[in-house]
Write a protein that binds this DNA or RNA. Sequence first.
DNA 1: AAGCATGTTCCATAATATGGAACCGCATTC
DNA 2: GAATGCGGTTCCATATTATGGAACATGCTT
Lengths: 259, 259
Amino acid sequence: MSNTGKEPATGTQALDRAATLIRTVVQADEPLSFVDLFEECGLPKSTTSRLLTALERTELLERNGDGSYVAGPLFWLYATRHDPWEELVRLARPTMEKVGKDTLETVNLAVPRGDRVVQVAQVDTPYMLGTRDWTEVEVPAHCSALGKILYTHAVLELPTGRLDQLTEHTVADVDDLRRDLDRGRRRGYATTVDELEIGLTGVAAAVRGADGTVIASLGISGPSQRLQGRLDLVGHTLIDRADQLSVLLRRRTRKEGAA
Amino acid sequence: MSNTGKEPATGTQALDRAATLIRTVVQADEPLSFVDLFEECGLPKSTTSRLLTALERTELLERNGDGSYVAGPLFWLYATRHDPWEELVRLARPTMEKVGKDTLETVNLAVPRGDRVVQVAQVDTPYMLGTRDWTEVEVPAHCSALGKILYTHAVLELPTGRLDQLTEHTVADVDDLRRDLDRGRRRGYATTVDELEIGLTGVAAAVRGADGTVIASLGISGPSQRLQGRLDLVGHTLIDRADQLSVLLRRRTRKEGAA
DNA sequence: AAGCATGTTCCATAATATGGAACCGCATTC
DNA sequence: GAATGCGGTTCCATATTATGGAACATGCTT
């Protein structure tokens, strides 16, 4: 009936409806009562009941104490077996590709691991001159935009003492760095110009996870010449994209109007 | 057809079959080709094809480059939003309850967090005299069986220097502790008798995650009087149960015979 | 070119899912 | 303590929907 898509989708009505139920439960990520699902999906009561019972029996959904539905054992199983970062990368991929289209520079996603920053995914620039693949390569956090974001949001602990001075522009003094981070915090994005390598500029923004805390940073890097003059533009693009990704990761809290 | 269960399951054939496909893919946790699924689930080819197409359309499954099926975006989404430990607890619950039935003592599950051990789940003893609920309470690792397991498998770094001496039986010397751990490693389970508190005994075994590394320890604790004499029995029960849980967590590698 | 393995599409058939209505159990309310 | 409303399940005649055998594509290999 309400075939919003353009797909023919023949011979799978029951399954499609069941999938809608599963999707609703998983995306809501908050126990949904029978009525919630019934209303949200607009299926007849009896059908809803029948499908939900089957989904529960097959462990795709589960009912908790008060009878409301949550994702079932099969979802837990998947979750325990997979590194959340591995999944973050998959979910972030489309966003990163959009950033690539927006900026035409090398795009990176970084997460904290211990007291280090690691880049976990990369989308390459179409230009010949670009940043090498440094996925899994560790770069000093204080001279990378990605790292600065993580410092700013206290996901990574600020080091003490003198920092490595990689170039003449590297901010090697902790207090200077703190000031730099503060500036970044106000703007919403972090930058590093010639601080890691002469001629290399990076820009990054924060990605928030399900609980609202910063879990990763999304950034680009490229030749300083190509980026100077559009740092602010690129910064805001990154903020927007990072926010979009955060929304995707965020549990969608029920729109108040619950029973 | 092959209705192994005793459920009537009426009006949901299509959905049940689809669920079988999903389950097979998620449990295998390795890309499965169309033929794998076709053979594994024993459904007609055309039906399999139709269902798989629908599952892919609804993002419950996904095909990767070579056309084989893996868990889809809905599973990633769930995984990124949930702490794997939260899921571990859910999956471990039944095992823990079995241990509770086996031993009649308080059952605990602990994981390393930073350089500490935290108990993340507990099943209580039916006896009046039992261990209090110390979920989320931190206990010195060197005098808890749960902690010793984590030390043994190097998931937790062995401290240096003198350790806190909580009772006269506490193993406070690192070298002594190392010897204690070695004994535990050989036996397969760790114990602590009167080391944390006089009269309190604990026993624990290792739980391994998807990649085969130790990720948690499963143990019991109770009055030393009730446990003395059956430490070895309880130890082996714990080893068995912990192994069962590990199997559940372990990716089921395809039974070699792949194409 | 032929053979084979992997997947998909077709379509007549009937088995299957459908959904309106009746029903159940349980709180609230009067 | 009857009555009303709410959340959910069960029934069952109906026809819509899924089914599956066979034919058809689409690469590979021989």
